[in-house]
Each structure stands twice: as structure tokens, then as C-alpha cells.
Design a protein around this nucleic acid. Structure first.
Lengths: 187, 187
DNA sequence: AGTATAGGTGAACGTTCGTACACCTGTCAA
DNA sequence: TTGACAGGTGTACGAACGTTCACCTATACT
């Protein structure tokens, strides 16, 4: 039962679409589509995935998203409460404008006090006007760097989140390539 | 052209599957499936999405994933190089074991020196044996907390990543509910 | 003026789709 | 011993699928 579900999940992750009934039949070793039909309806009853108006299978929240439990302080809900929790896709959460979004790996510790460490990935969005206080990716002296974007007296400059680095006041105009929209770190 | 692509993308995000030719026909206002057929083949030629062996549409890397450009220092590649960059799905990157993975929102600043701030989301995995040095979600005195997991002389204890908080040496056994596998923050 | 060509219509095709119904087991409780 | 039932087989069916072909524009280039 559980292995059926996992095989279907695996198909979805590899093929980026749900299998047809015939495909499920082949991969689970059934000899009749009807066996699949009954199995699928049971799995839908369990909330594993859904079926849309055309009868096609569609992945479910539980299937492709992550349960969002609330605050750390609250800990883990009991089994009874668990069905009530929110779920979300991290992709959807972190990315607003897919066309202009990129990932960069962080080198150095100049933003350490902003909680951005070496090896983290930052999610950046191109082509947006930076606001003071944003963390931006900017070009200075032919190299790229990540800093806070500041403006005083109408002039833009850059500030690190690490007392060991001084501010950068660019001679010419400051070239901001992208603003940082998010950070992800994996342990 | 570009708006065609965006409408198909939008369908995919809402329905979690690619549309059929007939559905594309309806949503783009065509009156013939063949118009869709030609359009689809052109979009595939541009690498927007793919078609599998059954002729069904399948989202592509460019379609559902985020370009990974490299180090911050390297900045943005030129248009010519851009086709060579890696892409990845944040969901896949951050989550190994989907069944046991949950999200928690961080309250407080006890892990600030580990780059985890209030309001961040931590990705936690249940049912794993913690190793010394892991960041864990543990139950102490009836409440839940996030700390470093330490072991000295065979006894487990907890350490914050903030000098303002002292270590926690539990009286009885330490209940570790989950270990922290990742952090995400959105600006 | 003539002609490729890109982009659309409309009808037809064989295949695959999800669904339905009848039937055949084995298991387990009454 | 019987009967209900969960779970599987086999067949059938209409609808929807992707694909193909012939044809119809406009537009752009020679």
C-alpha cells in the first residue's frame, strides 16, 4: 500500500507529471486497469493525491508540498491535529517573478550580521529598483559584491553587515544588478 | 508569444499538470488544435518545455526551476553564457525525505550567531538520530526550543548560538523531536 | 506581380484515456 | 458452512488525446 504510493510519487518526481492508469498498471505489476482504478480511488480517499474534472490525476498538497507547523515554540502537533496544518511549496513561497529570479552562492562573510553565511544560496531578482535597506548585488571596481543598499543626501552607497568591512562609496554611479529576495541554507 | 508561454505556465502552477492541446486551444483563444500543435512545437524548440514519448507535455528545467549562476563574486553571466548555467528546484534541493519533513517558524534570537533569525523558516526532519553539532528541535521543561545538540561524557545537552543564553543540561533524558536540515528566509 | 512563408482553420485518423460492468478468487467473521 | 467483502482479472465503450493533411489567409521579399 505504502509502496504503491511511493512508486507513484517516484514516477511524478522523475517525469514531472502523474502517470496514466495504464502506466501505473505496468509499474505496479497489475494486469487490469480496473485494479488501478480501485487503488487510485482508495488513495484519493486517503488524500494522497487528487483527480481533476477530466479524471486525470493531480498531485496533492501532501504529495508535493511541505507541512507548515507553526512556531518552533509550539513544537509538533499531535496526530489528531496534524491534518489541520498548512502546507506550502518552498518554490512558490520564495519566488515571485520566475523570469527574473536567479540563485547565487555566497562567498565571504561580509553579510554575516544579517544572517547570511558563506555557502548560503541567495535568491535574487533582477531588474528591480533597489530601496534603501535592501540587500543588493552590485558591481564595484570590476567585481561583484553583496551589501546593504544605503542612500544619504541623494547618493547611494554600500554597507556590509560585518564591522570588519568599511562602507563603499562609489565614485561613479552604483551599478545594482539585482536585489536579494531570500536566503536558503542547507545543513 | 511570450504571453502564450506565461499563460501555459500559469495553468501549470494552478493545476499542477500541463494542459492538453484542447485546453491550450481554449485558453489562448484558438479555434483549431493544429494551431496549438504548431505553437507547442515551436516552444519546445525554444526549450520552454518538453514532450515525452507519449506526446504529452512535460515542464522543463527552465520552466519550473531556478537558474543557479554560481558565486556572488562572479556576478551575472553575459547573455551568451546564460544558457550554460545550472538550474535547480529549491524544493528538491532542500528536502531529502519528504515524508518526515516539516517547516517551523523561528521565534526568538537564541540561534542568531548561527545565522538563524526570528521569522526565518527552518526545515526540519523528524525521526533522525541527532549528531553532536546538529541544530535540533527539542522539548525541555514542557516547551519546545531550537538549539545546538552537544554531547559531553555521554550526556546530551543543548547550547544556544547566542551568548545571552546559557546551556541547558536536562535532568532526564533529552527529547529531540527533529533535526534542522535547512533554513529559508524571505525579504 | 509573383511567391515563399508564418500562422491560422477544419476535418479526420488511430491511439490512449478514464470508467463501467461482470466475474473470479481468497480471507475472515458470524 | 455460509456470506460478505476486499482485491484482482478481462472486456468493452465513449470521450479525449496527439497527430496529420489539405486548405486558407495575410505579410514580406524578390
Amino acid at each position: 500500500m505504502e509502496t504503491y504510493k511511493n512508486k507513484i510519487l517516484e514516477f511524478y518526481r522523475q517525469s514531472r507529471r502523474m502517470p496514466s492508469y495504464a502506466e501505473i498498471m505496468a509499474m505496479l505489476g497489475f494486469k487490469s486497469k480496473n485494479a488501478v482504478y480501485k487503488l487510485v480511488n482508495k488513495l484519493i480517499g486517503e488524500g494522497v493525491f487528487d483527480k481533476d474534472s477530466r479524471g486525470r490525476l493531480v498531485p496533492n498538497a501532501l504529495f508535493s508540498e511541505v507541512p507548515m507547523l507553526g512556531l518552533v515554540e509550539a513544537g509538533f502537533p499531535t496526530a489528531a491535529e496534524e491534518e489541520l496544518v498548512d502546507t506550502m511549496s518552498l518554490d512558490d513561497y520564495l519566488i515571485d517573478n520566475k523570469e527574473a529570479t536567479y540563485l547565487l552562492e555566497v562567498k565571504g562573510d561580509s553579510m554575516i550580521d544579517a544572517g547570511i553565511q558563506e555557502g548560503d544560496l541567495v535568491i535574487v531578482e533582477r531588474g528591480r529598483e533597489p530601496k534603501p535597506g535592501n540587500i543588493v548585488i552590485a558591481e564595484v571596481d570590476g567585481g561583484w559584491t553583496m551589501k546593504y543598499y544605503r542612500v544619504t543626501n541623494g547618493r547611494a552607497w554600500l554597507e556590509a553587515a560585518n564591522p570588519r568591512y568599511g562602507p563603499i562609496h562609489p565614485e561613479q554611479e552604483l551599478k545594482v544588478a539585482a536585489i536579494v529576495k531570500g536566503v536558503v541554507r542547507k545543513y
